[in-house]
Structure formats: C-alpha cells, structure tokens
C-alpha cells in the first residue's frame, strides 16, 4: 500500500503551505481520483508522493517502508507535457530503454510502432510521446502510477485509447493508480474513490 501520513509542503521555509496534514492511501489494484482546478498544489503533491521532493512534514511509505533513494522507484509519475519528460536529444529507442527495455508485449499493448524507434521526441505527436513515456514508466518493478493530467492535452479519442491500455495493464499487474485531473467527467468515469482535498467549497 502506498501511504502518505500527515504530509505538508511549502516552497519557501516561511511561505504559505500548499497542503498540510494530508493523508492518502492507495492500495494495489485501486484507482483513486484527485480532482481540482489548476494551481492548487495537486502536481506538487504528486511530485512529493513520487519522491521528486521531500515533504516538510509527515512521511510517505510503501508497504510500511520509506521510499528508497538511489534505486528504481516503484512509484512512477506521468506528466501533463510528455515533451518535457524526455531528453530531446535522445531517440525513442534510447528513451524507452532508460530503465529497462520494455517487452514487445507492452509495446503492442500501447501500440508503439517500430518505426518510431529512430525518431526524436519532437517528431512524435503528444499522444504518441505520452504512450512512450507510459511504456518507460511501466517497468516490471512499478507498483503505483501517478497520472498528473496525463491526457489533458489530448483529444478525446486518443485519451480513451491511452486510458484503455493503462486500465488493462493496471488490472493485469495489480497496479495502484492515482488519477489527477481537472476534468471531473474523466475522474468519475475512471475512479470509484476520489480525494477531495483540492476541491474548494463553492
């Protein structure tokens, strides 16, 4: 179980808290939604959960153990802009193999074409590149996927195609998913449970 207890974060040591005293738990195989409009700290929370930043208070644990530094992180984060999450000077083949070369089954499941391998990231469309990022994040050791506005730059059909693939893989591997989005229709059609920390009472 991915568990955050009483986490708090702020950028400056005397600045305002982005969030404080948050409790989150995601079980393997569970899909949890985190709705809310932009600029409220959802992305920061995701980065904290994925080990990109340390929370100023509280702790994050996986099955009772703290996150390991300097090893493959079983919690992988997917960003809104895939073009920023890849080295622009690497060809797709090298990108995919950064952690471990993905199996050909995974590539077919995400419909990643063999002809992309020799291209540079900017030569793929946003949806294609996001699928490449997904394949990279779906390492055999990955247990939790945090999807931060993963498909909000994509058209409805591409979005549905990507989520269909992710849902299939998550079910097969019993992955825990956190879906972060401003699109409440997307969250309610994907998730049974939602966390309403970032929804402001109107």
């Amino acid at each position: 179980m991915l568990e955050a207890k009483k986490v708090a974060f702020r950028y400056a040591t005397d600045g305002p808290w982005l969030f404080q005293g948050l409790d989150i738990d995601i079980k393997p195989g569970e899909i949890v939604g985190l709705p809310g409009s932009s600029g409220k700290g959802k992305s920061t929370l995701a980065k904290t959960l994925a080990g990109y930043m340390k929370p100023h208070q509280g702790s994050i644990r996986i099955d009772g153990h703290p996150l390991q530094q300097k090893a493959f992180n079983p919690v992988q984060l997917l960003f809104q802009h895939p073009e920023l999450a890849v080295n622009p000077r690497w060809k797709i083949k090298k990108l995919l193999a950064e952690a471990a070369a993905p199996s050909s089954d995974l590539l077919t499941e995400l419909s990643i074409d063999e002809s992309w391998m020799e291209r540079y990231p900017h030569e793929l469309s946003g949806g294609e590149l996001q699928r490449v990022c997904l394949a990279r994040a779906l390492h055999p050791k990955t247990q939790y996927l945090l999807c931060d506005e993963m498909t909000s730059m994509l058209d409805a059909l591409t979005q549905a195609i990507i989520w269909k693939a992710v849902l299939g893989i998550a079910k097969k591997r019993n992955l825990g998913l956190l879906v972060i989005s401003h699109d409440s229709a997307l969250i309610s059609s994907l998730c049974r449970r939602t966390l309403d920390y970032f929804i402001q009472p109107v």
Binding site: A160, W163, L167, A185, L186
Partner: peptide, 22 residues
C-alpha cells in the same frame, strides 16, 4: 465514423467502452 468515435470517446459518454477494435 471518426467524428462519431471522437464524440463517443468523451469521458461523459462512452469513454473506453466506446472504442472499436483495432
């Protein structure tokens, strides 16, 4: 058919269930 697929793939409508086989 593409317009229909695009429209049906909206999360508020068919979403992943609307996808035809490839």
């Amino acid at each position: 058919p593409y317009s229909r697929a695009l429209w049906d793939a909206l999360p508020g409508r068919g979403f992943v269930k609307s996808l035809p086989a490839r």
